[in-house]
Nucleic acid binder design. Sequence first.
DNA 1: GTCTATATTTGGATAGAC
DNA 2: GTCTATCCAAATATAGAC
Lengths: 185, 185
Amino acid sequence: MGTSERLIETTQELLWERGYAGTSPKAIQQRSGVGQGSMYHHFSGKSDLAAAALSRSAEDLKALVEQQLSGPGTAYQRIEAYLLRDRDVLRGCRIGRMAQDSEVIAEPQLRRPVEETFDWLRGRLAELVAEGQAAGEFATGPDPAEVATAIAAVVQGGYVLARAADSPEPFRQAVRGALALLRAH
Amino acid sequence: MGTSERLIETTQELLWERGYAGTSPKAIQQRSGVGQGSMYHHFSGKSDLAAAALSRSAEDLKALVEQQLSGPGTAYQRIEAYLLRDRDVLRGCRIGRMAQDSEVIAEPQLRRPVEETFDWLRGRLAELVAEGQAAGEFATGPDPAEVATAIAAVVQGGYVLARAADSPEPFRQAVRGALALLRAH
DNA sequence: GTCTATATTTGGATAGAC
DNA sequence: GTCTATCCAAATATAGAC
């Protein structure tokens, strides 16, 4: 594996664990085993490396989610597969976490992968909701885009509530509540 | 206003804006106008001061939310009042933001106010959902505690999606979607 | 491409005078 | 209670040798 690769993967891990403000170049060098000179040879600095890591994480996450959303079954079943998939809930969302970090939000190069991931997710969920409405699985009153955004928000908020409680349980409750409301029509 | 008071309020602001990792003693001293000696006279250090600030923020937030939830109207109307209240969406939630900060989650003194706030909120919402079910406003199938947690998650996740998009719109969409699902039965 | 040396600023605090 | 001096490590690089 190349040096850049090692740096990017290590930075992905550290950003997920500690956020942008909490991730130092020194920590990246130590965990990756790459020296300071090498790091600054391959990347211009912390934010350059973080931008590469976040783009990579965004791609990884979209690919993973697409597996659930494009699986077999009805629209409801695919949304359910996404919401109930195995997660290490207390780690939180590698992308959603970055939205709380003011430095990430302030730097377009860092915010863009975060924004694009959620734009994609909300659009993809909206397609499924519309499909489920057409199939008579869901109530047809609600706007599919609004319901899709609510579903994405339940996941992100579920992580917040779970970390606050230091327990995965609130995440699971939130998801079950959302599924119950989707079904109840 | 006392010196401790000034320190606490300034720390509340900075934690909201920059998170725990991003808030330094020096920044607190500069914004509050309180000197270093004074700060360390009144508080033993950063985490002590942050604990006081977070407890205060938790109280403030609970009082504010309780206004909406205990207002006039049906259960649905009070939940709606809470979800639609005027917010500076892009600032995010002063309490929910802290849940993403690993140092906060790791220190019980810092995590406790965050945990308690959401425990209280979820319980309070669950009462309202149960009340609405009893009154025939909501479908009676879903578990009130699960629906309540989903509602709290929509708010927290709405902030995440809004900050990611650098626009309040996803928050508003998520909330409208949640209200539509609550109504659709 | 990688290494070591060096540099500046901040983080986070302690000590002791006033 | 507040101020100034001082301290040491970490953050975030740049420079130049190899």
